[in-house]
Every structure is written in C-alpha cells, then in structure tokens.
Simulated assay, not measured.
Amino acid sequence: MGRPKALTTGDIEHALDIAARVVDLFGFQYWPIFERLEAELERRASREERLNARLNQSMTDQSPVPNVRSGRRFSRDDGHLGA
C-alpha cells in the first residue's frame, strides 16, 4: 500500500456539503463534524492569506537582506508549499 492521498480543499468542501445535509436530516448531534470541517477550511484559508501577505511584504521590503525566493508557492489545495 502507498501513502494516503492528502485531502484537498475541494474534498473538505464536498464533505462539508454532505455534513450540512446530515445535520439537516438527522439532527444537531452531527454538528461537531460540520464545525470541524468548517474550521479546517478556515485554517487553510488563514494560513494561505498569512503566508501570501508575508511573501508580498518581503517583496517590497527595502532591507539590506536579499530577498531569496525559490519560486515555490503555497498551494491552497493541499496546505503545503508546492513547486
């Protein structure tokens, strides 16, 4: 067996849609699942925004430290830096 595939943002959004229907049909005892999925989406968005803000700030920084970038960008889908 290989390594399990990382969940994408789309996967989590799809699961959140399903969780919303489950809560609607079967009650609020399933609410914690909905909240957990929603929190994960918010965490990923926040992480992406914070990283991109820092990268943009470093691009305009006039400090004597050189701005060394490898061209890697944050990937919204997997929450990891990508080439």
Rank of each mutant, 00 (worst) to 15 (best):
D24Q: 14
R69P: 04
L25M: 00
R73T: 13
P4I: 07
P66K: 11
A19D: 11
E48N: 00
L41Y: 00
F34Q: 15
L81H: 05
S70Q: 04
A53K: 08
D77A: 11
A20G: 04
S58N: 09
E42M: 10
V23I: 10
R54M: 06
L16V: 06
V68D: 12
A6P: 13
D11R: 07
L81M: 15
L41N: 08
R50Y: 00
G27V: 06
R54I: 05
L51P: 01
D17P: 08
Y30I: 08
S58H: 03
P66T: 08
L16I: 06
L55I: 09
A20L: 01
G10K: 11
P66F: 06
A83K: 13
A19C: 09
R72P: 07
E38W: 11
H80D: 02
R54G: 01
R76D: 12
E13K: 15
D17S: 14
H80R: 11
V68N: 03
K5Q: 15
P4C: 06
E38G: 15
F74S: 01
N56D: 14
R3N: 11
R43K: 13
A20S: 09
L7Q: 14
L55D: 03
R44G: 03
F74N: 07
M1H: 08
Y30C: 13
G82F: 03
P4D: 02
R3Y: 10
R76H: 09
L81P: 09
E13I: 09
I12L: 10
E42D: 15
T8A: 03
E38N: 15
A53R: 05
A20E: 04
D11V: 03
Q29I: 10
P64M: 04
A45R: 03
L7Y: 12
E48P: 04
R36Y: 01
M1F: 10
G2R: 08
R3I: 12
N67L: 11
L41G: 07
T60V: 14
V65I: 13
L81I: 02
G79W: 06
E13L: 13
R50N: 06
A53N: 04
E35L: 08
Q62G: 14
P32I: 05
A83D: 15
E40K: 12
N67E: 12
T9V: 04
S46L: 12
E40W: 02
F26H: 06
F74L: 03
G82Y: 04
M59F: 04
E49P: 01
S63G: 15
A19M: 02
V65W: 09
E13P: 06
E49G: 06
R72A: 12
L81E: 13
D11F: 00
N52E: 11
L81R: 03
R73A: 09
F26C: 12
L55V: 13
H14F: 07
L16S: 12
T60Q: 14
W31R: 15
R69W: 09
D61W: 05
E35S: 06
T9M: 13
S63E: 00
E13W: 02
L55A: 12
R54D: 10
L55M: 10
A45G: 07
L51S: 07
D61Q: 10
V23P: 10
I12F: 03
D77N: 05
T8R: 07
F28D: 15
P66H: 03
L81D: 10
S70I: 00
L55E: 03
S58M: 12
A6T: 10
R50L: 05
A39P: 05
